[in-house]
Amino acid sequence: MKSARIFAAASLLAALFTVPLVNCSHALAADAETVQAKEGWYGKRVDDAFVARYAILPKPDGVQIVDSRPTTRKFDPGHIPTAINIPDSQFDKFADQLPQDKNTLLIFYCEGYECMLSHNSAFKAEKLGYTNIRVYAEGYPDWIKKGHMGAVSIPFVKKLLDEKAAITLIDSRPKERKYDKGHIPGAVSLPDSQFDKLAAERLPADKNSALYFYCEGLTCKLSSDSAEKAVKLGYTNVKVVPEGYPLWAKLYGPGPTGENAVSATPAIQQGKETGTITVASFEKIFKEAPESIHIIDVREPQEFAGGTFKGARNIPINTLEKRIDELPADKPIIFVCGAGGRSGEAVDMVKLYKPALKTYFMDADIKWSKDGSYTIVEKK
């Protein structure tokens, strides 16, 4: 009996020491293999930690992340940085976007556990001769849930700009050497090297504001570095635009240069109440860059005639709803009145009927003289 026990123990030890070494890439994917595989899934899978090794700027060589979801509805408004988009439904049409080297690591993903698009595309790539394929089965929802940075496409940025959406687009490149020679229209210059110095001035006060950072394309890491710094400052809606200015220029032509740049335009600082602009912020803009905003005075005509801000336009509050289509959409609108009541109502009305417009008001007591002078006392 004793010899039998000794033999069993020896056999167990031998078995332990003769376990074959696993492939390194399989080891990295071990966590993903603990997920219960579904019928039809691709056999080799990875988790978010594995993908994060390659979803960085500058884009690493020898790997390509592929988003298998629909372009406009899914990829454009949010995807893993450095990923290209080959919708599974159009795989055969766009397969030429895959790397020529069939040994390149391909990582496919889509919309999570219930989504089969990435698995389907992985099998198709395998049939084309690719030999190093993985699927991130948890996909983009898991990527965001795990706290990783999301990315948006250049066409999506163009769409937001055309819609006058309330976003802040930040150019992280050097100002004189890059930004002044051409940038995406409406972008604020905030070089990554000066982020700590200029962030308070150039970024909006509202930490929920949508921030989109870009630089010089997939070989440039300035935008992702700045985006991470913004997150550390407490901003909660931050994304990168990995393809940056080079793709913008290719798709839509060169952007404005330093001669008509907005980098010198002070950023609008929102007050404590939603929809307000601080008095200090307004006065800085009114003094240094009055052409960057529209001022709409919503008082009665006789009040307006008694004095207002230079360049202001009069649309009384009781006529605003009928004249809502007269409001300009190319620049932020600052509504003003004598005490903040009517101008605040104007902001609420525009948010109801034309929410895409950028509108603000001052919660302050304002008095004007006919000569254009004024006094403002911000309410506490």
Rank of each mutant, 00 (worst) to 15 (best):
R73Q: 14
A55F: 10
L57G: 00
Q97C: 00
S89T: 11
D47V: 05
T82L: 01
C115H: 06
G112P: 05
I84K: 09
I56H: 12
K74Y: 11
D67C: 08
K102G: 00
G112C: 02
V46G: 04
E39P: 01
T71L: 07
I56P: 05
I86G: 02
G112I: 10
V46L: 06
D48E: 15
G43A: 07
I65E: 09
D48F: 13
L57Y: 11
E39R: 15
P99W: 06
Y109N: 09
E111W: 09
V35W: 14
Y113L: 14
D47F: 07
A37G: 13
L98G: 07
R73P: 00
C110T: 11
D47C: 06
G40C: 15
D101G: 00
K74A: 14
I56A: 13
A37T: 15
D48W: 13
P58N: 10
T104A: 03
K93A: 14
Y109A: 00
F91Y: 12
F50C: 01
F91Q: 09
V63R: 04
A29M: 12
Y54T: 05
L106Q: 04
D61T: 13
A30T: 08
D31R: 15
V35I: 15
K44P: 00
P81D: 10
G43S: 14
Q90G: 04
L57N: 10
L105S: 06
A95L: 03
G40M: 14
Y109P: 00
T72C: 01
V51N: 05
A83C: 04
R69N: 05
F91K: 06
W41L: 10
D88L: 02
I86E: 11
P87I: 09
T104L: 01
N103A: 05
I65H: 10
V63L: 01
V51Q: 08
P60C: 08
V63G: 01
R73S: 13
I80H: 13
F91H: 07
E111K: 03
F94M: 06
L98Q: 02
L57W: 11
D76H: 12
A30H: 12
G112S: 04
N103M: 00
G78E: 14
